[in-house]
Design a binder for these strands. Structure first.
Lengths: 201, 201
DNA sequence: TCAGACATGTAAGTCGTTACATGATTCA
DNA sequence: TGAATCATGTAACGACTTACATGTCTGA
């Protein structure tokens, strides 16, 4: 049994930084959490409603002077407790599913040529991700050194919060390290497969 | 839209190595693919039925002399085509969801202490996985050097198939590399957070 | 005026897990 | 005899995504 229901905690966690609308939350996730988390509206709005129903969040209508009516949610004391419990509790060891690794494994029967093609394709994919992460890392590292928070992140990170900026940089850097490990693996795999191919022919 | 339905391809791929029962497939996935793939019976048996319904696999009842009736599935020509198309087609860039990274990111507001606790916990978790993978890697590397297939893998890998054994070893080794990258990241993160903590106090 | 961002929501469908139900055979 | 393994399947639930539906405001 045991429902993961992790969307709840992501929402609660973001709300613990201040009141937000569903739309805000979606944007924040896209800006700051996209390399390790995602949420869709179809998940978000119902989750917000259920949080309110359970007393973990409160909904308030912002009267629209100019724009369309927004619904602003704030976390309650109960919500903070539930969030803190989750944070302190056990963290699931994720069971991943990698389509690439599945293909690669299953390509073993078709011979090293096909496996090689797959690795090369994967390498290109990962190299693109690597560049992206490396660029963000540079921006954030510089910001941390200067001690200020980049504009785009001001909704996600409190001004002058060095610990928050550091944690943000570190989450990104884990992604970077993993991608670089995969890149190194690609090179090893290509070399071993090429040698295998050379020996067979 | 576009249904992933990747279980179909995993099944088709395993079937392309020879006829198997649902139970066999489950076991094979557990033995050989567990670090990057999983299947549950609740997914497997319906998938097998739908494969038969679409003419991609054939079902045959094995008359049980001793044991309970088994249903053996074989791949058809059509199944091979569908499988080959998937193998040649584009590979999805996975959108991962890491509960750890979510917690870590969200812990930034609670200060570096909480973040440190999370990283240390994660490090222990990853270290355990690392040991496991490293042990398997040693066994497989030795087998590859000797040129024989370990007994436990004889259902998954054809005897004398060096390319298959190599690919098997390489899938494992990607896992190993990634885990080791995470371990290195943990050390970096711990160091940076400790320094942050020291400077603040 | 029209594209793009802002903004909220629902419906349908897929994917996947867990728990349940059932029953045979083997071996200690 | 009883636990473990072999073996097949279903029911219920939960999580999540996509597409759809709708409408406002801002600025080029």
């Amino acid at each position: 049994m045991s429902a993961p229901r992790k969307t709840r905690f992501a929402v609660l966690g973001l709300l613990s930084g201040g009141p937000l609308s569903g739309y805000d939350i979606k944007k924040l996730v896209e800006i700051g959490l996209s390399h390790f988390w995602s949420e869709s509206y179809g998940q978000l709005y119902p989750t917000l409603e259920s949080l309110v129903a359970e007393g973990l969040a409160e909904k308030r209508a912002e009267q629209g002077v100019g724009r369309r009516q927004r619904h602003i949610y704030s976390i309650t004391e109960g919500g903070r407790e539930v969030f803190a419990e989750w944070l302190a509790g056990p963290t699931e060891v994720p069971k991943m599913r990698s389509e690439f690794l599945l293909k690669f494994f299953l390509s073993g029967r078709d011979g090293a040529d096909e496996s090689l093609r797959l690795v090369r394709e994967f390498r290109d994919q990962q190299a693109a991700v690597d560049e992206e992460y490396a660029a963000s890392d540079a921006v954030l590292s510089a910001a941390l050194a200067r001690g200020d928070v980049p504009d785009e992140l001001s909704d996600l990170i409190e001004a002058d919060s060095r610990p928050q900026l550091l944690v943000f940089l570190l989450t990104l850097r884990q992604g970077l390290r993993v991608v670089e490990a995969r890149l190194a693996w690609c090179d090893e795999a290509i070399e071993m497969l090429e040698r295998e191919l050379a020996e067979t022919t």
